[in-house]
């Protein structure tokens, strides 16, 4: 099955934030009251009610100030740590290239929040004492894309900064765009997400280094998630298996030796 991807061309983004609104509209997410903090960026962070947002970043290079806009949401990693730590199977990596979330199955453990190298999932904590909570994040509009539609944000994007389609096609669009930008003198133009964490489902065309956008230069699969999978899980199985075998052998030997309680000897 060929995989799909979303392409965010930051060089075309005008920061209208139509994507933020379309996301809220499609998913029925409440508007939240925010405070003016001295930036046009609003809201300042993702939340259980905000799955996608535009970040405003100031970047100075060669004496020139750039105002960089980035559509941020789930990166839909191929090697998705959130999927690996999810104990309920609520998070799944769909073969077509996005990470789906079944909120009915989510038990609110919050492991995904801590495992994500991009710090995307958010936990809506209803009650700390009972642990009632639900994780939320962008699913690339799992309901829409599996029914042949584009994600809501892509559909609404006026300057065409957001595109959606076959991943290979998106990659070639991205590469071509980088070439064009370079020809226009944007020396630092580059793609992001081609190979990171096995390839991201949200691809980027950037005009500055990833760190200028607040993205990790080389996102890493968390070492502690690896440890859990490669150490704690196999150790548990091996230990329990060996112990069961040892006890079974012992039980057979006690039967053969006709052992009994000291009282009855």
């Amino acid at each position: 099955m060929s995989s799909i991807a979303m392409l965010v061309d930051t060089s075309k983004c005008t920061a209208c934030r139509g994507c933020q609104i379309a996301c809220k509209q499609w998913w029925d997410l409440a508007a939240t009251r925010t405070k003016q903090t001295g930036s046009y960026e609003n809201p300042r962070d993702l939340s259980p009610e905000t799955w996608s947002r535009v970040t405003f970043n100031e970047y100075e290079a060669g004496g020139k100030l750039q105002w960089l806009f980035l559509n941020l949401g789930c990166m839909h990693c191929t090697q998705a740590a959130c999927v690996d730590v999810c104990p309920t199977g609520a998070l799944q990596h769909n073969d077509t290239g996005f990470v789906s979330l079944d909120r009915e199955q989510c038990n609110g453990c919050g492991y995904c929040v801590e495992a994500c190298p991009f710090r995307i999932p958010r936990l809506d904590v209803v009650n700390t004492l009972t642990g009632e909570a639900k994780a939320s994040k962008c699913t690339l509009c799992q309901d829409r894309v599996t029914n042949g539609l584009t994600p809501a944000c892509v559909k609404t994007c006026p300057p065409g900064a957001l595109q959606f389609g076959d991943r290979t096609a998106m990659l070639s669009v991205a590469r071509k765009r980088v070439d064009t930008l370079k020809a226009q003198g944007v020396a630092q133009a580059r793609t992001y997400g081609e190979t990171e964490l096995g390839g991201l489902g949200r691809l980027y065309v950037l005009t500055a280094p990833p760190t200028a956008y607040g993205l990790p230069e080389a996102p890493e699969y968390p070492a502690l998630v690896n440890l859990w999978h490669n150490l704690a899980q196999p150790l548990g199985y091996a230990g329990a298996g060996l112990m069961t075998a040892g006890l079974a052998v012992n039980w057979l030997l006690t039967r053969r030796a006709r052992l009994s309680n000291v009282e009855e000897k």
């Binding site: 919050g110 492991y111 495992a115 704690a232």
Partner: peptide, 15 residues
């Protein structure tokens, strides 16, 4: 401590 301790502290706690 969910959300208020660093990620690595939380993940290490699970392990």
């Amino acid at each position: 401590g969910k959300g208020s301790v660093p990620s690595n502290v939380f993940l290490a706690s699970v392990i």
